[in-house]
Design a protein around this nucleic acid. Sequence first.
DNA 1: CCCGTGACACTCC
DNA 2: TGGAGTGCCACGG
Length: 267
Amino acid sequence: MMGNDLDSITGALADLTAPAAPGLADRIFGSWLAAPSRLGAAFVAFTGAGVQFVRSAESVRGDAGAFAEAYRDRFGRPLRPADRAPAGLLGALRGTSAASLQLDLRGLSDFERDVLTATSRIPAGQTRPYGWVAREAGRPRAVRAVGTVLARNPVPLLVPCHRVVRADGLLGDYMFGSAHKEQLLRAEQGNVDEVAALARQGVHFVGSDTTGVVCFPTCPHARRITLAHRHGFRTVGAALVSGYRPCRYCRPAAEVIPAHPDAGSDR
DNA sequence: CCCGTGACACTCC
DNA sequence: TGGAGTGCCACGG
């Protein structure tokens, strides 16, 4: 923690000089600062309710003005320099402590929030396909819409959209470029090369014949299956047919298989 | 309100 | 086997 007496004093003074409700100031402007992240310097905008907007400095050519302009385009308010960072922000940007950081996601649609929430549940170093996020968000067929939402993720790095990948094993696109997507996954100890090698063989799921559980290849359970007991599958269905059940941790398939054959002629 | 637009997925040759 | 074609859904103009 970085608290000290000076911080306490200046914080108390700020409270005295700014007696208005924080919600009022939030309606007039947002606060911004620059901070180190796993993608180099990053610009961060926030309100009293939490972090609202994050962009790598590189993506705006290191121009804080361009960042503020992008913020204004999106949130309709100007930015003002902050004197201190929200609790937990620096650790979260660094990827060391992802917990206890408040996000201000007001203004997003329910669908967008659900997509970001599902995405934030993907552990570091692991990946899930877009279809998985769609299912976890409660709209199993809104796969393309998930991509649209993530392309506009207001808080990349904090909501780890770089962990959402294509079902065919390719990493897919990324707001800051797919090279950075790969870089982030490697930094998180993701088994990027192993997954790619499996995908080239048509394997997208891995099961253990001792536990009868089938996982995504990035699942920690999958990664500790010894070679002798490891079986690859192209689809979850193929694994189920072989008597495997989906891992309850990485959930490569819905617990209850929907399988409503004729649901096309509704309404 | 219709239409075009995607960080996708699945099916066929 | 992989690339084109088609289906998909949420949004914005």
